[in-house]
Design a protein around this nucleic acid. Structure first.
Length: 464
RNA sequence: GGCGGAGUAGCCAAGUGGUAAGGCAAUGGUUUGCAAAACCGUCAUUCGCGGGUUCGAUUCCCGCCUCCGCCUCCA
């Protein structure tokens, strides 16, 4: 497949460096609260990337970290009166729960930052020894940006802009650590009173690792100095990924990631999500509003990953209808197979366009369009042809990670009184007592249940 | 100020130098006791604005307007 690369700003073919396994790293969540739907746009797209590669026959090694030590985790753990480990374990569990609901494949390796502190310290020692890092009087260690000429290559910043950033950043002046240049970033943070019990021993005294270094150390541990692809949200391009490159290349040599995959942020109601605007949604928020995780996944796939995607609650409703339509199409196609089953589909038949879209810079919205078009094309097929088309469609769905909803009624529990009411109405209807029948139907509607009459019976569905 | 992205029907959203995928909503029909659901059909002479190149531009170039993101620990 072809995918846009942030570094070279071109579409490039993805092929494993070692010819066998495509090894990639995704910056995972900082576990200090529930992930929001914007976070999940990134994780869902990374999941689709892997699924498309695997569906296309490329084996993957997927590494995604858990950031379980930083300012926010420490601050909020203490606020909650919990140990850092206990606090982050809770939010990590919540994250995994959400991931499973959204149909995300588990990464093959999911390292945590805290358990890799020795590796981080080792990297800092190397960087200091090579002259790329220096310690300050308070026991912090900084990376010297001026020692790495390629700094800024990924985000296309030149030195002038880095200097400019110095005067424009309020945070730079507010920094309480001592560094040679404002652009230098911290590798090791000296212990501070507000850190509480959360500090580790190092050659520079007590303290804790800097955020950027975590990823570099874990990548070095599991993927080495050269690997296929690195991914995250666009906001990580600078400074996080830029800093990772600097640390890793200066420590290990090598070229670090061969390809950079960045996902654009999700907008909500046309703007940035924020708590103050009341438009920051978590998966749980949406579930409480009656929407399913799969509906969210569908919405997130509805826009190209390099373009802003505008999320609205109404889009979830559209997703529900669309998923139901696909499910009906799949059922209709299944009925036409006449019992024929295709185990190993060759090619994608009517769904070739959908598959091609996925392989063309992960164009998920076009692929979704191709699903509907394919379904229409497949409508006239039967027997073996229908079976092949169905198998092809399922491959595309699997690549997208979409699990179709079952019958609307599956799993819905109908209360006894509602059931009785519906029975009474059905009898009235059979007796052609339209007045009573209609009245009971309204009564059911008032209690949130919709009746759909069929020839031999009726169907009850909860009104959404 | 710098870097990057976007403006396509009521909404969401693909796409292309050759005359606009798809979904939702809306709407007509079939069906239904009436509905709902389902099924079939309709739904942008037009792609932010103004120029230019071209036989032809929404797609390329120039200018402008508007919106959004990032600019040192935010996916």
């Amino acid at each position: 497949m072809r995918l846009y690369d942030t570094l070279t700003r071109t579409d490039r073919e993805l092929r494993p460096l070692d010819g066998a396994t495509f090894r990639f790293y995704c910056c995972g969540p900082t576990v200090y609260g529930p992930a929001h739907i914007g976070n999940f746009r990134t994780f869902v797209l990374q999941d689709v990337l892997r699924r498309v590669l695997e569906t296309g026959g490329t084996r993957c090694l997927h590494v995604r970290n858990i950031t379980d030590v930083d300012d926010k985790t420490i601050r909020d753990a203490q606020k909650a009166g919990q140990s850092l480990t206990g606090f982050t374990a809770g939010w990590t569990a919540k994250f995994h729960e959400d991931c499973e609901k959204l149909g995300l494949l588990e990464p093959h390796i999911e390292p945590g930052a805290v358990e890799h502190i020795p590796q981080q310290i080792a990297m800092i020692e190397t960087l200091v020894a090579k002259g790329h890092a220096y310690s300050s009087d308070d026991g912090s260690v900084y990376f010297r940006i001026s020692s790495f000429p390629d700094y800024g290559k990924l985000s296309h910043l030149d030195q002038r802009e880095l200097e400019l950033g110095k005067t424009q950043s309020a945070r730079a002046s507010a920094d309480e650590y001592e560094k040679d240049s404002v652009s230098d970033f911290v590798l090791w943070k000296a212990r501070r009173p507000e850190d509480g019990d959360n500090f580790w021993q190092s050659p520079w005294g007590e303290g804790r690792p800097g955020w950027h270094l975590e990823c570099s150390a874990m990548i070095r541990e599991y993927l080495g100095e050269n690997f296929d692809l690195h991914s995250g949200g666009v906001d990580l391009v600078f400074p996080h990924h830029e800093n990772e490159i600097a640390q890793s290349v200066c420590t290990c040599g090598g070229h670090f990631a061969a390809h950079w995959f960045h996902i654009t942020h999700l907008l909500v109601d046309g703007g940035k999500m924020s708590k103050s605007l009341g438009n920051l949604y978590t998966l749980t928020d949406l579930e409480q509003r009656g929407f399913t995780p799969m509906e969210l996944r569908y919405v997130l796939l509805g826009g190209h990953y390099r373009k802003p995607l505008n999320f609205t609650l109404d889009s979830l409703h559209a997703a529900r209808e669309a998923l139901a339509k696909i499910a009906r199409g799949a059922r209709a196609l299944a009925e036409k197979t006449g019992g024929e089953v295709t185990l190993d589909a060759v090619g994608f038949g009517p769904f070739q366009a959908a598959w091609d879209s996925l392989n063309d810079d992960l164009n998920t919205p076009a692929a979704l369009g191709g699903l509907f078009t394919g379904l229409r094309k497949a409508a006239g097929l039967s027997g073996k042809d229908a079976a092949a088309a169905l198998a092809a469609m399922n491959r595309v769905l699997r690549a997208l990670g979409i699990v179709l909803p079952d019958d609307a009624n599956a799993g819905v529990k109908i209360p006894d009184d509602i059931h009785d009411l519906a029975e009474t109405r059905w009898q009235a209807r059979l007796a052609k007592n339209w007045v009573q029948s209609d009245q009971l139907r309204e009564q059911l509607a008032a209690q949130g249940w919709q009746v759909k009459d069929g020839k031999d019976g009726y169907e009850l569905t909860p009104a959404r």
